[in-house]
Write a protein that binds this DNA or RNA. Structure first.
Length: 716
DNA sequence: AAAACCATCAGT
DNA sequence: CTGATGGTTTTC
């Protein structure tokens, strides 16, 4: 196919007249260059042919955001719109432009009558397609998110807009049927009545208002149905929704619930794993307004839903909501920024509650939606089996029984009525070793790194420095024996299978994850995050090795443990029971028993406030080679009240599980990766982001070595 | 990555 | 003063 827009337009006066009043620039270099080009061109070719195409009559200037990875170029550049591209170069269209001597991709942000740029404008080279893939409000959101994360718009755009697929683009998007099912008929609509503010939330959504809620779901809740009902309520008021969940399994559940609530054709699931054609087709269906309700994982937070009225994030504590690619935006933060920008309703929901969600309540920005105590008690009974620290002092062997008698009893009772879920901590922690007797994690004497086994015949070695410890001895109790603290879910399944034969044992975890299990009695062993949903709910839920879930040296360990436990107990059937094997004296264990994620989050929030940790403070990290990080520290213009901590070698700074891997050649101190932690009062958060962004632009302009900047890192 | 820019300096 | 040169800055 020939591209008409690239052909030079009809002949015109050789040198374009300067705009009246516009400064005529001498541009000697340019004149010289043109003269050379003219001579180089075949002699006899008329000068008029060499002149660029005639500009568009209306708005001959396109503001283009170019896709280059350099922070200091993260701003629009003006290009001349040739007349032939006047209709195609709409705001939001993908274009190719010549930028710094190279052909680069970009998006038209807007069209304008004139440019502020003093020099000559280069023409657009090509409009890739007139499809306005980048919605104006998403362009704005992208800028806000980039600013918050001290990153570039181009990086955020890559997360927000899927790659083009020409075939998918040629097909029209099928329009939604005229009317969705009445919102009140949604299966989940009645479910909100169980919550103190639930009915009010739905009413407000149906009235087209923008309520903001932090919702803590009751155990066993059919949360996809309730969220679908919320989206249906918003849609009945003519407003679209974006619903973000952690993983594909949750997308499937919510997808099905939305189908039931709205009828087919009103919503779409944006799946990262769907393949380029499907992904682009679904994206276009949203962008073109054919679908107004979107469910998806973190990329869906940017979905260009028309008339957006509600944003939802489910289980915002799941680390899958944290984007692993620069500039590392978090779904919750993206959606909150978007809600503020577009004036939408917000639901931050989960079985647990993050300290960030709690902060929204603390400041009064959002309202709490929780089930009354009686309702929770009706749904599940949670008990604890395990020795307290006090008991352990008297009898260090008390907790060596991994599956205590009470647990066996629970499983047996449950199996009489249906499937029983057994959650066992992820095998991922298994690499680290612990004292066989007192279970204190085994650490390197030289650098305090965690020890691990690299082979059955070799002595334990440090993950960080690689030093071998053939004669290790526990620093706490003096014992010499080591154990891998986790019996993987496979072995747990084996053990339980023997105990409860002939009841079938199903295993879910690692790369073998089950989505659903039937209502029939079975022992279902799963690692956190891989729990299958049981038809009709589990008769009982057993949470093993609570001590291990709490053994990680991380700021969020307790919060994360509670999140995983509540997620499992959340799958119980009404009237079911749950048992946690852990120290009953711990506040986090009591929070599970009382189903009081809110109280726990409030307590954590208060503690962190005193320790000047997020969310009351804003944290950012700068990671890179020591020399570069030190330069950054020197260049940073920190806002008032800011503190800089470090830089500290990364190996020691964080609990990062195996960096660097043993066997990495030794590096000199100057080449070591270091991390600088910056902390400001929350009110200065924006100023901190701006200061970091400024340094990034400066460093990129000077071609200095890149450093990794992370604002609000999910863990330290 | 290429072009434009700019300071410097040898050769008039 | 002019044009060549080489390093730095800009990129529409």
């Amino acid at each position: 196919m020939t591209d008409p827009v690239q052909r030079p337009g009809p002949a015109r006066a050789p040198a374009p007249e300067p705009e009246p009043g516009e400064q005529q620039l001498p541009l000697p270099g340019l004149v010289r260059a043109r003269a050379r080009a003219g001579r180089a061109a075949a002699a006899g070719r008329s000068r008029a042919r060499a002149v660029e195409a005639q500009p568009a009559e209306v708005d001959p200037v396109a503001r283009v955001l170019v896709d280059v990875p350099l922070a200091h170029l993260d701003r629009p550049f003006d290009y001349a719109v040739p007349a032939a591209m006047a209709d195609a170069a709409v705001p939001g269209a993908r274009v190719k432009v010549r930028f710094a001597g190279q052909e680069v991709a970009g998006y038209v942000l807007e069209r304008a009558a004139a440019s502020q740029h003093a020099g000559r404008l280069a023409p657009l080279r090509r409009v890739v397609s007139p499809e306005p893939v980048l919605a104006p409000e998403v362009a704005e959101l992208t800028a806000t998110v980039a600013r918050r994360c001290a990153g570039t718009r181009a990086d955020v755009l890559r997360l927000a807009v899927p790659p083009r697929h020409a075939t998918a683009e040629r097909e029209p998007s099928t329009a939604a049927p005229a009317a969705p099912r009445p919102a009140g008929d949604a299966p989940g609509a009645a479910g909100w009545a169980a919550y103190a503010q639930g009915a009010g939330l739905l009413t407000a959504l149906a009235a087209g208002a923008s309520p903001r809620a932090v919702w803590t779901a009751a155990p066993g809740e059919d949360w996809p149905a309730l969220l679908a009902a919320a989206a249906a309520a918003a849609l009945s008021a003519g407003r679209g929704s974006v619903l973000c969940v952690p993983d594909g399994k949750d997308v499937d559940r919510l997808d099905a619930a939305l189908g039931a609530a709205l009828g087919e054709g009103h919503h779409v699931a944006l799946r990262a794993d769907a393949g380029p054609a499907r992904r682009y087709r679904d994206y276009l269906a949203v962008r073109r307004g054919a679908r107004r309700v979107v469910v998806g994982t973190r990329a869906a937070a940017f979905a260009p839903v028309h008339d957006l009225g509600l944003v939802v994030v489910w289980d915002d504590g799941d680390d899958l909501h944290a984007e692993p690619r620069a500039p590392y935006p978090h779904t919750r933060e993206t959606l909150l920024l978007r809600a503020a920008q577009q004036g939408t309703a917000v639901v931050v929901g989960g079985f647990a509650r993050t300290v960030e969600a709690q902060y929204l309540l603390r400041t009064g920005w959002a309202r709490e939606v929780t089930a009354p105590r009686e309702e929770v008690r009706r749904r599940v009974t949670v008990t604890v089996a395990g020795a307290s620290e006090h008991d352990l002092v008297r009898d260090p062997f008390a907790r060596t029984a991994r599956v205590p008698r009470q647990a066996h009893d629970l499983v047996r009772r449950g199996l009489a009525h249906g499937p029983v879920l057994v959650q066992t901590p992820r095998a991922g922690y298994a690499g680290s070793l612990a004292c066989e007797r007192c279970r204190t994690p085994a650490r390197c004497e030289a650098c305090t790194g965690p020890l691990r086994l690299t082979g059955s015949t070799r002595p334990p070695a440090c993950r960080w420095c690689g030093r071998a410890h053939p004669a290790w001895r526990c620093g706490t109790c003096g014992h010499r024996g080591l154990r891998a603290p986790v019996v993987g879910e496979a072995r747990t399944a084996e053990e339980l299978g023997r105990t409860f034969a002939p009841v079938p044992v199903r295993s879910s975890g690692g790369d073998h994850v089950l989505a659903r299990v039937p209502e029939t009695p079975a022992v279902v062993v799963a690692t956190p995050g891989a729990e299958p949903v049981a038809d009709g709910g589990y008769a009982a839920v057993l949470l093993l090795d609570g001590w291990l879930a709490l053994a990680r040296p991380d700021l969020r360990t307790a919060e994360e443990a509670l999140r995983r436990w509540t997620a499992a107990v959340g799958l119980v059937r009404p009237g079911g029971e749950a048992l946690l094997v852990a120290d009953p004296a711990l506040p986090v264990v009591q929070a599970l028993v009382r189903w009081d994620a809110g109280g726990f989050a409030e307590r954590e929030t208060a503690e962190r406030r005193e320790a000047h940790l997020p969310p009351a403070s804003r944290i950012a990290t700068v990671t890179g080679r020591a020399a570069a990080v030190e330069e950054v520290a020197a260049l940073l213009r920190l806002p008032a009240g800011a503190e800089a901590l470090g830089p500290v070698p990364v190996d020691l700074a964080g609990p990062g599980p195996g960096t660097p891997p043993a066997g990495t050649p030794a590096v000199s101190v100057g080449d070591r990766e270091v991390r600088l932690v910056l902390r400001v009062p929350r009110a200065q958060g924006a100023a901190l982001s701006d200061a970091l962004g400024e340094v990034q632009r400066l460093r990129s302009a000077r071609k200095l070595e890149a450093v990794r900047v992370q604002v609000d890192p999910p863990s330290l």
